[in-house]
C-alpha cells in the first residue's frame, strides 16, 4: 500500500509506520504453512527410506521386491533374516485390482443414476448415503466383515464359484478359504466405492448441458444420452477416479489385515489365503524385533512409492478432466 504524502498537520492524511511489518510477516507465516505440506511429505519419505536402508542394502532393491521369502531375524544391529516382499506386493495388487473391478461398474451406475435418472428428491440422500459410506471407520467395516460379510456373503459365493465349472480356471480354483484375496477384495470394493463414485459423478455433472439437450432433441433415449454423450465426456474423470480408488485400495490396512488370511503362500487362485503389504505391517509390528521393523519400514517405503505413482498419475488425469472439488474428504 502506498502512502503518498505524510502530512503531519491536523486534518491531513495520517499514516504511521506502526504495523508496517505485519503484512510481510503474515505473508511469511502463510508461505511457511503451505511449505510445511511439502516438508512433511519429504521428511516422511526421507526418514523411512534412511531407516529402511540396511534392508535395501542387504537384499538389493530388486532382490527385496522380487524375493519370495520373508523370515525376520532377531538382531538389533544387522540384517540376519531374509526379506522378500513379492508375496505381499502380489497380494496387495491382486486385492486392489479385484476391488476396482467390482467397484468401478457399481460406481459408474450410481453416478449415472444420481445425475440422470433419480427424481430430484432422491438425489441429495443418495449422494449423502454414498458419502456416509466413506466416513465409516475401517475398523468398523473390518468387524462387520469378519462376522457378517465373510461368513454370509463372500465365503458362500467363493465356494459356489470354486465348485462350479468356473473352478477349473487356475484363477478361480478351490478349495475356497474363508479369509482370502477374494474376501479381502470384495470387502475392499465397498471402501473404495465412494471416492470413485464422487469423482465420476462430478465429472459427469460437468457435461455441457447443451450437448445433453442437443442429444435429447435429436430423439436419443436416456440410455443413449448417457452412453454417447455423458460417458465419453466424463471418461477421463472416471479413469482418474478409478486410479484414486486403486490408491486407496493399495493403502487400506485394517480391513485387509483381518480378511486376507496372513499367508505367504502366494497362490494363483483368488480363493487362497494370502497377505498384503499393509496387512503384514499391521499384524506383525507389535511383536517385531528391531531388525524386523527395518523390514516393515522397507515395505512401507515400497507401499508409499506404489501409491505415489498411482496417485500422481490419477491427479494428473483428474486435473486434465477439469476441476473436480469435494473429493478431499471422501
Amino acid at each position: 500500500m502506498t502512502t503518498p504524502t505524510l502530512d503531519k498537520g491536523p486534518g491531513g492524511l495520517r499514516a504511521s509506520g506502526k504495523g508496517r511489518l505485519a503484512d510481510p510477516l503474515f505473508r511469511w507465516a502463510v508461505v511457511v504453512a503451505a511449505t510445511s505440506v511439502l516438508v512433511i511429505l519429504a521428511v516422511m519419505m526421507g526418514r523411512t527410506t534412511v531407516s529402511a536402508w540396511p534392508i535395501f542394502q542387504a537384499e538389493g532393491v530388486w532382490g527385496f521386491l522380487t524375493g519370495r521369502e520373508w523370515s525376520t531375524g532377531q538382531s538389533r544391529s544387522e540384517v540376519t533374516g531374509s526379506y522378500g516382499a513379492l508375496p505381499f506386493i502380489y497380494g496387495t495388487v491382486v486385492i486392489s485390482v479385484l476391488a476396482v473391478v467390482i467397484a468401478v461398474p457399481l460406481a459408474l451406475g450410481i453416478a449415472l443414476f444420481t445425475n440422470e435418472l433419480a427424481p430430484w428428491w432422491l438425489r441429495k440422500p443418495l449422494v449423502y448415503a454414498i458419502d456416509t459410506l466413506a466416513m465409516v471407520p475401517s475398523i468398523v467395516i473390518a468387524i462387520v466383515a469378519v462376522f457378517f460379510f465373510i461368513p454370509v456373503v463372500t465365503d458362500p459365493m467363493g465356494r459356489f464359484i470354486a465348485d462350479s465349472p468356473l473352478g477349473a480356471l487356475p484363477l478361480l480354483s478351490g478349495p475356497a478359504q474363508r479369509a482370502s484375496y477374494w474376501s479381502a477384495g470384495l470387502v475392499l470394493s465397498i471402501m473404495i466405492l465412494p471416492i470413485i463414485t464422487a469423482v465420476t459423478r462430478e465429472t459427469f455433472a460437468n457435461t455441457p448441458p447443451d450437448e445433453r439437450n442437443a442429444a435429447y432433441a435429436m430423439g436419443a433415449t436416456r440410455w443413449e444420452v448417457m452412453r454417447w454423450v455423458i460417458i465419453p465426456r466424463g471418461f477421463p474423470g472416471m479413469v482418474g477416479g478409478t486410479m484414486l480408488g486403486i490408491g486407496r485400495a493399495l493403502g487400506e490396512t485394517i480391513v485387509v489385515a483381518f480378511t486376507v488370511g496372513s499367508s505367504q503362500r502366494m497362490g494363483t487362485s483368488l480363493f487362497f489365503g494370502g497377505d498384503a503389504v499393509t496387512a503384514v505391517i499391521f499384524n506383525t509390528f507389535a511383536t517385531a524385533s528391531p531388525e524386523a521393523i527395518w523390514g516393515l519400514l522397507a515395505l512401507g517405503v515400497t507401499l508409499f512409492v506404489m501409491t505415489m505413482l498411482v496417485n500422481v498419475l490419477a491427479r494428473l488425469i483428474v486435473m486434465r478432466a477439469g476441476r473436480v472439488s469435494g473429493d478431499a474428504a471422501v
Binding site: V37, I40, M44, R47, G300, L303, V310
Partner: peptide, 17 residues
C-alpha cells in the same frame, strides 16, 4: 498438487514414518 497427492498417502505409511 502435493496436498491432493497427500490425501492418498496410506495411513499405515504415515504411522510408520
Amino acid at each position: 498438487f502435493f496436498t491432493d497427492v497427500m490425501t492418498g498417502v496410506p495411513s499405515i505409511f504415515v504411522g510408520l514414518a
